[in-house]
Structure formats: structure tokens, C-alpha cells
């Protein structure tokens, strides 16, 4: 068997899959943020005229996939697999979307790193020549997440300064066999990290070590250095987690201060009063599908390391005083595949 594995955690695609197109649809608050011009659609009402917020999230998810298919003039029948997930119990928004689409479906969950998990699996299926076209998606909704993970929306409690704001929106991506840039050349699958943080309203601090470990493993496995990338972007560490990640990477000998940022930090600005900025499965999904894909197409960015991060907590175990297991998955996306060092 030909070995395409690099080190412990990385796969190198000799025949790298193509990201053919993306679609992003967001709620009103994200539509007021600094990335507003990059999204395909901004809904002015976060209920989307649906009766419940769960239905609204399903609408976001479905609408992003439909928009994606429409852009490429494809039908459900042209897609071999649909891989996706969201934050709600039993990933229900994505499953309802899968029901409507009628595409063979893998439901996945890595909390806010779901989009990365879906992309990694899709890339492997395509590179293994088991499929031609795969759609991946991830979604989240502020109000449905609040009611599942925290307190009722109208209750008058104060949020902590470390708390992050769940992004309302859905992003989807169409992957296909090697044809044109941008390509997915490497994926580094994360190992769960848990440094004993228990506060569910401080997820940036909980997730930072997962991001750091995955980025370090990626550099170790591939031999790349921070300067090889135009941009290294984590998923939803927020302002608190971003600072910790940057500092920890520096302590480990990698200076990323010039080309590192975080999707959660970028999606809102200071004036939007979200405290530690954005989070949620939709956060990295819409920032990639909206902003990053646009920059890759315009060749403003040619090589990026996209590292969505996920806090794999359950409200039940949090109440029981358990810690928060966290994960981060890294994906290298390049316009000109250099592929780096070969597998031994």
C-alpha cells in the first residue's frame, strides 16, 4: 500500500481535492459585522419566519446547501455524499436538511470544529476516488444554542467577559476531484485535549491547547513553518483564546504574530458587544465560505492553514462538574499545491 500519511496525525493528498465552491448565509448580527460583504445572503430576521429557532437553524442550513447547488447548477442527484453537522442535540438541523436533500448522508459532530471534520472526511473519500462530488455543511444559531446550552433568552442574567456569542448562520462547501484551485493538500486530525477547564462560558481558554497541539503536530508532521502560510486561522477561540494560542505557540518556538487570526475574532467587531467575540459551528463555516474562499479565489491568499476548534462539552456533564474535552482539526488549502515533503 502506498503511504500517504505524514507523522502521527497528517494525511498528504498527492491528488488533492478541489474546493469547487462555497455558500454562506448568516443572521442579522453577523450581517452588521466587518465581513458582511462576503456572505451570500444576510437574513434580516433570525427567526426566518419560522415558528421555532430550531426550525430557523434548519432553514439556514438547508438554504446554504441549496444556494451552493444553485451556484454550480447542480442537483441533489449529482452529489455523492452530504456530510455535515451542527450544535443541536442529535445534530437535528443537519439531519432535517439531509432529509430534504435526499443525498447519501454522514452526520458528524465535533462541536464548533464540525466543519473541519466534515471537510477532512470528504477530502479522504474524494482522494480515495470513492466519490466525485461531496457537499459538507455546518450551522449554528445563537438562540437555539442559548436555549440548549445556557438559560432562556429573556432571563436577565449577566454574561461573563470571557463568554462568546454563538454565530447564527450556515456555511457549506462543494468538494470535487482535482480540477482547479484552491486545493486541499494536507489534513491534520486533532487529538482531544483537556487541561481541566470547567467553565462553559470560557471556551476560548478551554480550546486554546487543542488548537496549539494540532498546529504543532501539523508543523512537525509536514515540516512547514508559520512563514510558509499566508494565513493561519483558528475557528472560534475568540479574543481570549487567540491571545493564549499565540503566546503558547511562541513559547513552543513558533512565532505566528504576523499571520495568525481567529474566525471568531474576525466575524464581529468591538462595537457589537459580544464580549469575547464569536463562536459556534457556523462561525468557522461562514468565515471560510464567505471571506476566506473569496480571498483564495482573488489570490489575495494563496496558502492558508484553517484550524476550526471545538469544545466537546455536554450541558449535562458541565452541570456534573466535569471538564471540557476540546479538539482542533487543521486543513491546508493552497492555490498552487506544493505538497511539501513526501511520506516515507
Amino acid at each position: 500500500m502506498k503511504n500517504n500519511r505524514l507523522g502521527r496525525q497528517t494525511i498528504r493528498f498527492e491528488n488533492p481535492p478541489t474546493i469547487l465552491n462555497t455558500a454562506s448565509i448568516v443572521g442579522p448580527k453577523e450581517g452588521e459585522g466587518p465581513l458582511r460583504d462576503y456572505f451570500d445572503k444576510v437574513e434580516c430576521d433570525d427567526t426566518c419566519k419560522e415558528k421555532t429557532f430550531e426550525k430557523a437553524e434548519e432553514y439556514f442550513c438547508n438554504e446554504s446547501v441549496e444556494t451552493l447547488l444553485h451556484k454550480e447548477r447542480l442537483k441533489s442527484g449529482d452529489i455523492d455524499y452530504y456530510i455535515g453537522g451542527d450544535l443541536l442535540n442529535q445534530i437535528i438541523s443537519t439531519s432535517f436538511t439531509a432529509k430534504k436533500l435526499g443525498i447519501p448522508y454522514f452526520g458528524v459532530y465535533s462541536a464548533c470544529a464540525t466543519f473541519a471534520e466534515a471537510i477532512q472526511l470528504a477530502s479522504c473519500i474524494i482522494a480515495g476516488e470513492f466519490a466525485l462530488n461531496i457537499v459538507v455543511s455546518a450551522s449554528s444559531h445563537f438562540s437555539s444554542a442559548e436555549r440548549q446550552y445556557r438559560s432562556p433568552l429573556e432571563s436577565g442574567v449577566q454574561r461573563k467577559m470571557t463568554a462568546q456569542w454563538t454565530v447564527t448562520g450556515a456555511g457549506s462547501m462543494l468538494l470535487t476531484q482535482n480540477s482547479k484551485p484552491p486545493y486541499i493538500t494536507h489534513v491534520t486530525t486533532g487529538i482531544v485535549q483537556d487541561y481541566g477547564i470547567k467553565e462553559a462560558d470560557n471556551m476560548g481558554t478551554a480550546m486554546a491547547p487543542a488548537a496549539v497541539e494540532t498546529i504543532l503536530s501539523h508543523f512537525k508532521d509536514t515540516g512547514y513553518k508559520p512563514d510558509d502560510y499566508d494565513l493561519i486561522i483558528t475557528g472560534d477561540l475568540g479574543t481570549v483564546g487567540k491571545d493564549i494560542t499565540m503566546d503558547l505557540l511562541l513559547r513552543e518556538g513558533f512565532d505566528v504574530s504576523k499571520n495568525y487570526t481567529d474566525c471568531g475574532v474576525e466575524i464581529y467587531d468591538e462595537s457589537q458587544d459580544t464580549h469575547a467575540r464569536g463562536s459556534g459551528a457556523g462561525c468557522s463555516a461562514v468565515v471560510f465560505s464567505g471571506y476566506l474562499f473569496d480571498q483564495l479565489n482573488k489570490k489575495e491568499l494563496n496558502k492558508i492553514l484553517f484550524v476550526p476548534t471545538g469544545a466537546l462539552l455536554s450541558p449535562t456533564t458541565t452541570l456534573q462538574g466535569d471538564t471540557i474535552p476540546c479538539i482542533a482539526h487543521a486543513i491546508t488549502i493552497e492555490n498552487t499545491p506544493e505538497l511539501g515533503k513526501e511520506a516515507k
Binding site: M161, G196, I197, T205, P209, E213, V240, D243, I244, L248
Partner: peptide, 19 residues
């Protein structure tokens, strides 16, 4: 990570990183 190994080390380290 080489610089931080235990939960306690991490908790002490992040203390002054909090807003």
C-alpha cells in the same frame, strides 16, 4: 506542549490572560 504539561500549570498560566 513542552512548556505546559499539567492542568495546574495551565490554570496558573491562563490566570492573567483572562479579561
Amino acid at each position: 506542549m513542552k512548556s505546559i504539561k499539567t492542568d495546574k500549570e495551565y490554570k496558573d498560566y491562563v490566570k492573567d490572560k483572562q479579561p
